[in-house]
Amino acid sequence: MTKSAQFLLILTSLPDKTSAQKLAKILIEQRLAACVNILPSCTSIYRWQDQIETANEIPLLIKTVQERYTAIEKLIQSNHPYELPEIIAVPLDSGLPDYLQWVTRETTEKNT
């Protein structure tokens, strides 16, 4: 495993497939994430402003490195239709070394 990078799995959800695809593409284009999985629609039940809400949402799984977290958080907030988007970062303790090296390579800014 690459020792210099701490790896993250970032979770967020969007209200529709179009906005999920748009955000995923921006994350990859800007090399903020190596891979974004767009999962099938799920039903979320939550309390918001003292009301119990039910919503269909599209979950995203974002694979990245710790050093890209702040930029990802800002990007999600600026491209997300919700007033308070879900942004949860889960640290990854281990993984297939070759895969984690690929994540590091894909999230490194290239000089072009």
Rank of each mutant, 00 (worst) to 15 (best):
I26G: 02
S44Y: 06
A55W: 03
E106C: 13
Q6Y: 06
Q101K: 14
Q21Y: 05
A33W: 00
I62D: 04
N56S: 14
S13I: 02
L11Q: 07
R47Q: 13
N56Y: 01
I26C: 06
Q66K: 13
A20E: 02
H80M: 07
E109S: 13
P97I: 02
I87A: 07
I38R: 00
P40I: 03
A5F: 03
Y69G: 01
T64F: 02
P15A: 09
S13A: 15
V36F: 00
K3R: 09
A34Y: 00
N37K: 12
I10T: 09
R31Q: 15
I26V: 11
L61I: 05
T54F: 00
K17A: 13
S44L: 08
Y99G: 06
T107A: 13
I62Y: 08
W102Q: 11
L11T: 08
Q77H: 11
K110I: 11
I76M: 01
L84K: 11
I26T: 11
N111C: 04
I52K: 07
L27F: 00
L11F: 11
P81Q: 09
F7H: 13
S44P: 06
C42D: 10
P97R: 09
T2C: 08
L14M: 13
T54M: 14
D93Q: 14
T112I: 07
E29P: 03
K3E: 11
E57I: 01
I10W: 05
S13T: 14
E57T: 00
S94W: 07
E67A: 12
I72L: 00
K22C: 04
L60I: 02
L11A: 07
E53T: 07
L92T: 07
F7D: 14
D16I: 04
I38P: 01
